Structures are given as C-alpha cells and as structure tokens.
Amino acid sequence: MQGYSAASLKPIFDTHIKNDAQVLADGWCGYNPLKEECPNLKQTLSNKGKNFKMLHIQIRDFKNWLRGVHSYCNKEYLQKYIDEYFFRFNRRNHRKINFR
C-alpha cells in the first residue's frame, strides 16, 4: 500500500474498524470520503500535537526505544522493529500470564 489516500486507507478501515466505531482523526482531507461508511469518524486539527497527546507520546516512546535498543535501523527491517515494539507494548501489563 502506498500513500495515504482514502483508497489506500479504506482496506484498513474495512478490515480493522467497525462501521459504528468512534474514530478520532486529524484534519487531513483523505478521511472525508470514508465518512460515508464510518459516520462516527470525527476530524479535529492536531494543534501541534496538543489534541493527540497520547499518540505523540507513543511515537516518542517508540523512537526512544528504537534508538536505545537497536541504535541503527535498516529500512528493510523497519516493519519487524515496529512489530516487536508493539508486541512488547501490548504485553507489558500481562507479564505474570506470559511467563507461567
């Protein structure tokens, strides 16, 4: 998938987001065509990150982890680095269950 057009995002919405889900997105115009199928999609301007504070914290944490753990990243393996980070992130509160 290349680009961030509505056509590129539609398969993600179709696969991972229910039509009645509450979706908060930035003000980018590529979301406009998706509002018909996702009526609860609300757009708001980023306001230099103030309206998406947790997203910016997550991005910062990922970058710090990537720089600290790997120090050098090859583009070829970037998706694997992202997968590893979110594997760890999603399991951080379930350590007792993970190591039985």
Rank of each mutant, 00 (worst) to 15 (best):
N93V: 08
D20G: 01
D14N: 06
N32G: 01
I97S: 02
Y4L: 04
E37T: 13
S71Q: 11
K18W: 01
H16I: 00
M54K: 13
F62S: 01
N98E: 15
V23G: 04
L41H: 10
N64S: 11
K42Y: 09
F86T: 11
K53A: 09
D20E: 06
L45V: 15
L66N: 01
G49L: 03
G49T: 06
I57S: 07
I82D: 00
Q2W: 00
K42L: 11
Y31V: 07
N47G: 05
G27M: 12
N93F: 14
N51M: 09
A6C: 01
D20L: 03
Y81R: 11
K48C: 04
E76Q: 08
H70Y: 15
F52G: 01
L66A: 06
N90C: 11
Y81E: 03
M1H: 09
A7E: 08
N47V: 12
H16Y: 12
I97H: 06
H94I: 08
R60F: 05
N51T: 11
L55P: 02
V23R: 13
G30Q: 02
T44Y: 05
S5A: 08
I59C: 10
Q43D: 02
F89L: 05
N98Y: 12
K35R: 12
G30M: 02
G68V: 00
N90E: 08
L24W: 04
H16N: 03
V23K: 11
K50C: 12
L9H: 02
N51L: 06
E36P: 00
E37G: 15
L41Q: 09
N40G: 12
K48D: 04
R88S: 05
L55A: 12
D26E: 03
I17W: 07
A25C: 13
A7N: 07
